[in-house]
Amino acid sequence: MRTNATLFWILAIFFFLMDAVYVIWSLIDVGRVEWAGTMGIGLAGALGVFLAFYMGRSHAAQGGELAEDRPDANIDDGDPELGHFSPWSWWPILLAFSCGLIFLALAVGMWIIYIGGALVAVALVGWVYEYYRGNFAH
């Protein structure tokens, strides 16, 4: 994770330098600052700073290198518990479809939001409560 933080710091510095080059170039070529590109490149540098800071803080909080980051580590050195996943669950697919309907409403018509919102509610309730009934009930 330390390598990722270093790469994002390098990327942020690169974007800030290119932002300065872009401003100078636009002043020479056009005679004024072109704000859309200047802000876009500057915000890309700010995003690099945010990600580098987060990665650095996460690396410091975990107490050093993870087993996944060491080249000499074995597969079983990492933490085997990654969470609980339902490989047979259809609810995430319905949730993705209903969120797609909500975004489709931006292009087609706002009335589709009501259908997508109802399907989002059904999919979330179904996904949360899928282990309380049926073959996989607790």
Rank of each mutant, 00 (worst) to 15 (best):
L47I: 15
W88Q: 11
A36R: 09
I28K: 01
Y54T: 14
F14A: 11
P71A: 13
G31S: 08
Y129Q: 07
M1K: 05
F103M: 15
F8H: 09
L27S: 01
G117F: 03
G37A: 08
S89V: 09
R2F: 05
H84S: 15
F50P: 04
T38N: 08
F50L: 15
T6C: 05
S26P: 00
A105E: 04
A61G: 12
R57P: 06
N74C: 11
G117H: 04
W91R: 07
E130V: 02
F85H: 14
F97W: 05
G48Q: 06
R70S: 13
A123C: 09
E68C: 11
L101W: 02
G42E: 05
V120T: 06
I24F: 04
G78P: 07
M1D: 09
W127L: 13
I41Q: 01
T6F: 03
I112N: 01
M1S: 12
Q62A: 13
E65P: 09
P92S: 10
M18S: 03
G126E: 05
D76Q: 14
G31H: 06
V122N: 03
F50D: 08
D19E: 05
M110P: 08
N135Q: 08
E65F: 12
A73K: 10
E81W: 13
L11C: 03
A46H: 03
I112P: 01
A107N: 11
D77N: 11
Y54S: 13
A12N: 03
D79K: 14
L51K: 07
R70C: 12
V23T: 05
T6K: 06
R2L: 12
L82I: 15
A36K: 09
I75S: 14
F16L: 06
W88N: 11
E130L: 02
